[in-house]
Design a protein around this nucleic acid. Structure first.
Length: 178
DNA sequence: CCCTGATTCGC
DNA sequence: GCGAATCAGG
């Protein structure tokens, strides 16, 4: 069993005060259940968080990396004036889900916000993709910018969620329609 | 049924 | 001290 080292306790305190749920913290720490986390929180006297964990209520939204489908396309060949075309194009642009396009904007070559980032240095704006063997000394997190509302940079978002898309493509529902 | 934190109690 | 089992609740 992994013991509560000073480092792990420190991380627990940080994540707990950040409003993460016990199960989320257990997932970050690894090797412990949410019950263990809650038990530790109580023994540390941390129960009763200052701020509400926000309305993160039910399951976290799974960001979709599907290829964006424009709601409409400007009809360039059917008598629309230049002005109309421009107007439609503008509407389409506004309707674009930003998450879908961010991966194309963020290249893997961008420098991490924090070099060799430890989990303690990750924020809402840093990619949480683990790099290397978690047991190795040089283990760290990607930490490239990710302010798209998803926990990964553009590159790792593709890596992380592509399998989900594949599964969706082969869902029973889709097979039935084929 | 998914999830949440709180509590108990054998280890 | 630890955490699984259990409880009460959203």
């Amino acid at each position: 069993m992994l013991s509560w080292t000073d480092e792990r306790v420190e991380l627990l305190k940080k994540l707990w005060s950040d409003g993460l749920s016990a199960s989320q913290i257990a997932g970050e720490l690894g090797g412990v259940t949410r019950n263990a986390v809650i038990g530790k929180v109580h023994r540390l006297g941390l129960s009763g968080r200052a701020k509400a964990p926000a309305p993160q209520a039910q399951r976290p939204k799974k960001p979709s990396i599907r290829t964006a489908q424009p709601q409409s396309r400007p009809h360039t060949g059917h008598g629309a004036t230049m002005g109309n075309v421009a107007l439609k194009a503008e509407v389409v642009t506004i309707a674009r889900p930003q998450v879908e396009y961010q991966p194309a904007i963020y290249a893997l070559s961008e420098a991490p916000l924090v070099e060799n980032a430890s989990i303690l240095q990750l924020t809402e704006q840093t990619c949480k993709w683990p790099v290397g063997d978690p047991g190795a000394d040089d283990f760290h997190f990607c930490a490239r910018r990710s302010d798209t509302g998803i926990p990964y940079c553009g590159y790792h978002a593709r890596v992380a969620y592509q399998p989900v898309n594949d599964r969706r493509r082969d869902s029973p529902r889709r097979r039935a329609l084929r």
